[in-house]
Computed example of a mutant assay.
Amino acid sequence: MKNTEYLRFIDKEVLSENWGRLTRYRLEYRRRDGSWQELSRESYDHGNAVTCLLFDPETKCVLLTRQFRLPVHLNGKDPFLIESPAGLLEGAHPEDRMRAELIEETGYEVSELEHLFDVHMSPGSVTECLSFYSGTYHLNNKVGDGGGVEHEGEDIEVMHVPLQKALGMIRTGEICDAKTILLLQNLALRDYASHDG
């Protein structure tokens, strides 16, 4: 823990360390008026991650997945979330990790990926920074069945969804995953810009 001109750490306590680490921090934060305020905050760290949206220019489809998500179930929502493929970095370079995740989850191998941006998805409580990529795929890029890794509890359905339908699924709530919405809207905006002259 490093003190700075706006932050002084008092204490920390690891509350849980299983898949990730949940830590409670006591700290002093320097407010904009120069006064110091003592705060207690919890932060969850399970590492950084990467996600990617692949688009097939021939079929105009995007490659998505559907899988069970316990936290969504606990929130009383449909837990079978439609998402862009993603995975934890676990020390790997984001692009390398994404290529491996694409094969594991979807069965597709691609040669070119473009880095788009890096986003903090839940900065109030989670340390994760997510790297976003895009790329092109074709049906003949399939090298395996996908579906994820069974011993990790993954049971992933692979979906080829027309881009315009996927955008409509955001409006209906069928797609409600933040990373996927960002990638779909980015693709739609880039497509719009390319046709706007």
Rank of each mutant, 00 (worst) to 15 (best):
L102I: 01
L102N: 02
L102Y: 05
I103G: 00
I103W: 06
I103C: 06
I103P: 03
E104Y: 08
E104C: 06
E104L: 12
E105T: 07
T106V: 02
T106C: 06
T106N: 04
G107T: 10
G107V: 14
G107N: 08
G107C: 10
E109A: 15
V110G: 00
S111P: 04
S111R: 14
S111N: 12
E112A: 07
E112N: 09
L113D: 00
L113C: 06
L113S: 05
L113A: 01
E114I: 07
E114Q: 13
L116D: 04
F117R: 10
F117D: 14
F117K: 08
D118H: 08
V119F: 04
H120D: 10
H120K: 11
H120E: 15
H120L: 11
H120Y: 11
M121P: 04
M121H: 03
M121K: 00
M121N: 02
S122R: 12
S122C: 13
P123F: 13
P123Q: 12
S125Y: 13
S125N: 09
S125P: 02
V126L: 15
V126D: 15
V126T: 14
T127C: 05
E128K: 01
E128S: 15
E128T: 15
C129F: 07
C129N: 08
L130E: 12
L130M: 15
L130F: 08
L130P: 01
S131K: 01
S131I: 01
Y133E: 06
Y133C: 05
Y133A: 06
Y133D: 09
Y133P: 08
S134E: 10
S134I: 02
S134V: 00
S134Y: 05
S134L: 06
G135M: 11
G135E: 10
G135N: 10
T136S: 03
T136K: 00
Y137C: 05
Y137Q: 05
H138S: 11
H138E: 07
H138Q: 09
H138I: 03
H138M: 06
L139I: 00
N140E: 14
N141W: 05
N141V: 04
K142V: 00
V143M: 02
V143T: 09
V143W: 05
V143P: 01
G144C: 01
G144P: 06
G144H: 03
D145L: 02
G146E: 00
G147I: 00
G147E: 00
G147H: 02
G147T: 00
G147M: 04
V149R: 09
E150V: 15
E150L: 15
H151T: 10
H151W: 15
H151L: 13
H151A: 10
E152F: 01
G153Y: 01
G153Q: 04
E154N: 09
E154M: 15
E154Y: 13
E154C: 09
D155M: 14
D155Y: 15
D155I: 10
I156F: 07
I156S: 07
E157Y: 13
E157N: 09
E157P: 10
V158Q: 12
M159R: 15
H160W: 11
V161M: 11
V161W: 01
P162F: 12
P162T: 02
L163N: 06
